[in-house]
């Protein structure tokens, strides 16, 4: 655990700084608000009304998120494998090739189905 204590120290320091900055900016800056200032910025025209919760956005982003999750997990498995690769030698290689090939199948499918195209 001692290995993580310094991280905490640094994090607290950073957090202190960030919070301080946020408070400072509120406290120090001038306050001359008007309605136009408080509107969302939209190049000077009347802002488009926003639905609650930020509205909807393209499905593409979801697909990217899903793909990311899949690949990130794959990486999670690659790391311990890589670290201990020297111990596993050929067995490790074969197993990982199988693993990567399996993921590659899904990857190829997504690619062919246009899952990677951003339009």
């Amino acid at each position: 655990m001692e290995l993580y204590t310094p991280v905490l120290a640094l994090a607290l320091l950073a957090a202190g700084f960030a919070v301080f900055s946020v408070i400072m900016s509120a406290a120090v800056g001038p306050k001359r608000y008007n309605r136009a200032k408080l509107d969302s910025y939209e190049c000077g025209i009347e802002p488009t009304p926003q639905p609650v919760g930020g509205g909807r956005f393209p499905v593409k982003y979801y697909i990217t998120a899903m793909l990311f999750i899949v690949f990130d997990i794959e990486i999670i498995f690659l790391y311990p494998w890589a670290v201990h690769f020297d111990a596993m030698k050929f067995f490790g290689l074969v197993e990982m090739v199988v693993f990567i090939a399996t993921v590659f199948v899904a990857y190829a499918y997504v690619w062919r189905r246009g899952g990677l195209d951003w339009d």
């Binding site: 399996t102 199948v105 899904a106 190829a108 499918y109 690619w111 062919r112 189905r113």
Partner: peptide, 10 residues
């Protein structure tokens, strides 16, 4: 099953 995905892809 994996082969099926490949077929589906190609």
């Amino acid at each position: 099953a994996c082969l099926g995905v490949v077929v589906e892809a190609f």
